[in-house]
């Protein structure tokens, strides 16, 4: 991994990641992912017969359902669903299964910061586990800029996020490290945005390495 000289390697380290595949028996693929104390479980059903109103005759339609810990889905949860849908649609080879549906169900287990990044990563791992043909894998990284010091902190938790001036979530593809999706909140300059994007891009290699090690582990078991 390319590291710039002025940035020590320790600054790219994310919260510890743990994952269990095939946790659920009913879906075609499932993944339970923990990034620090943030935990989600994702299940994939597909390719299945699509509902008539949602069917696309020349490609597969991607449906996402996101459930929070408690209560019904809110507007923010609909936004999370949209981000997961658009990101996964970019990765999946949708023309491979025309007139079918790929259903992604995500259940939030615990939110300790970086929930959107965790859900995207969990959905990607579940897609890998389900054997859905993909153009590339996706790594989502969450980061923030501190109010006073204006330092960039990668993968912050809830306590650190209280002192955030701006929060960013970037999703990168594994082929060219291009930005697939970007979600931002707060105030920031263009320079800060580009700096955080570059930092997240370099940190995404940790997530891709995690995917590879996980696949290797399961391949050896099989």
């Amino acid at each position: 991994m390319d590291m710039s000289e002025e940035t020590p390697q320790s600054e790219y380290i994310l919260r510890p990641m743990n994952c269990e595949l095939n946790q659920l028996s009913m879906p075609d693929g499932s993944a339970m992912l923990m990034q620090g104390n943030t935990a989600v479980i994702a299940g994939i059903y597909g390719p299945v017969e699509a509902k008539l109103q949602k069917m696309i005759y020349d490609k597969a339609s991607v449906e996402v359902s996101y459930s929070p810990i408690k209560g019904p889905t809110k507007v923010d949860d609909r936004m999370t669903e949209m981000y997961i849908k658009e990101t996964c649609e970019a990765a999946i080879i949708v023309t491979f299964h025309p007139a079918t549906a790929i259903c992604i169900n995500v259940q939030e287990l615990e939110d300790s910061g970086g929930m959107l990044a965790c859900t995207i990563n969990a959905a990607c791992l579940a897609l890998i586990n389900a054997g859905i043909p993909m153009k590339f894998t996706i790594a989502a990284i969450n980061c923030m800029i501190q109010k006073d010091s204006e330092d960039i902190i990668l993968d912050p938790d809830n306590i650190q996020l209280q002192e955030a001036k701006a929060e960013f979530t970037f999703a990168f593809d594994s082929m060219d490290k291009n930005v697939i999706c970007c979600y931002t909140t707060g105030c920031f300059t263009e320079t800060e945005f580009l700096k955080t994007m570059d930092r997240c891009k370099q940190a995404s290699q940790y997530v891709f390495d995690f995917y590879r090690n996980l696949v290797k582990k399961y391949a050896n078991v099989i």
């Binding site: 593809d173 594994s174 590879r212 391949a219």
Partner: peptide, 15 residues
Amino acid sequence: SKDKDIIVCVPGQRL
């Protein structure tokens, strides 16, 4: 060894 025999890949990996 068995580990050297199998080559594992992930989606999007250039072969």
